[in-house]
Simulated assay, not measured.
Amino acid sequence: MIKVVTSAAGGTRGAVTRSAGTLMACGVVAGPLYIVVVLLQMLTRDGFDISRHSASMLSNGDLGWIQMTTFVVSGLLFVAYAIGLARLPRPAAGRNRPWGPRLVGVFGAGMVAAAVFVADPADGFPPGTPAGAPTSMSWHGMLHLLVAQVAFLSLIAACFAFARRFAAAGSRGWAIYSRVTGGYFLASLISLVALQGARAANVAFALGIGLTLAWTSLLGVRLTRRAAR
């Protein structure tokens, strides 16, 4: 719990700070929740291979509701997290540029949209789907790709936005961590597009998602503790 401010104007500020603590907790659990559920599905869903299939394709099949629910729940948690991030005190140099929280919010909304616009089956998943890339794409499959790209790019931009914030605050280690995370995720996304179908690119991209979601969780812990001092 973030501490309550007891200054003359502390009543209102304290209430906002307490609510921010609850919202920040949403962000701490959102990434790990998504990672754990996807990992469990990777180990239990017949025919799924992370080197050939994206996690979004888990929304297909009889158990597709699990991934769709995961998208919605995780996405809403990230939206709540973004609100909490916006309520935390910011360094003076960044008070007029709250891009980090906004970008995290766009990512969360993108996750929810990814559940609505389901990715198309492909390359043998779910079982019964013809091997190889599909010869055509549905309208919801195209929209899924669109919202996914917007969400990924927003999260990458959030990494760099917070890197700038940490650099302005003198937190060099976190600035570097944020830049490296965003840089790797961007590189993996570019390789995924450039080397379509390459197994190494698929695995690198999946790793990029996992590392960046871990960053969002650790970011929440870091900023919550900092605000509580």
Rank of each mutant, 00 (worst) to 15 (best):
V221P: 13
D49K: 12
A200M: 06
F125M: 11
G84L: 03
W99H: 00
P134S: 07
A115L: 06
G11S: 13
R172A: 09
R165P: 00
V5G: 12
A201D: 05
F125A: 06
V203N: 05
D123S: 11
D120Y: 10
F205H: 14
G124K: 12
R199I: 03
S74M: 11
A82R: 08
A228G: 06
V16P: 01
D49P: 08
A9T: 13
A25K: 05
C26L: 09
F107M: 08
W215V: 04
F162D: 01
R102Q: 02
R229G: 15
R90W: 00
V5S: 15
V106S: 03
L40R: 08
V72C: 11
G173R: 09
G27A: 04
G208N: 03
A175N: 01
A25Y: 07
V16T: 13
A92Y: 00
D123F: 08
Y184Q: 11
L23Q: 11
L195E: 07
V4W: 13
R164Q: 05
T6R: 15
G124H: 10
G124N: 14
A114Q: 14
L145K: 10
I156S: 06
S51R: 09
H144W: 12
R87T: 01
R52E: 15
F160H: 07
H144E: 11
S217N: 03
L218T: 07
R179K: 08
F152H: 11
V150L: 09
T12K: 12
A151M: 10
G21R: 08
M111V: 07
A30D: 05
L33E: 06
G100P: 01
N96D: 03
F48Q: 02
W139L: 15
S74W: 03
A25P: 02
A20Q: 03
W215Y: 12
P134I: 09
R52D: 06
A161P: 01
L85D: 01
R199H: 10
A109H: 03
I190Q: 10
N96L: 03
L219Y: 12
A30L: 04
R172M: 04
A169L: 06
S171G: 01
G10N: 10
I176L: 13
G61L: 08
T6W: 10
S136N: 07
P121C: 08
A151R: 06
V38T: 13
G27I: 05
V72S: 07
T216V: 12
A115V: 08
L143C: 12
F166E: 04
I35Y: 08
I156W: 04
S136A: 13
S7H: 12
F160D: 00
A93E: 00
P32V: 09
F71H: 14
P89V: 04
T69D: 13
R179G: 03
A163W: 01
F48D: 01
A228T: 15
M68Q: 15
V29Y: 08
L103K: 01
G128L: 11
C159R: 04
A214G: 04
L186M: 11
S178V: 01
R229C: 10
A161C: 04
V104Y: 01
A20T: 03
F117N: 12
G94H: 02
R45W: 10
I83K: 02
G110Q: 02
C159H: 06
S154I: 02
W99K: 00
S19M: 15
V203S: 04
R172G: 01
K3F: 11
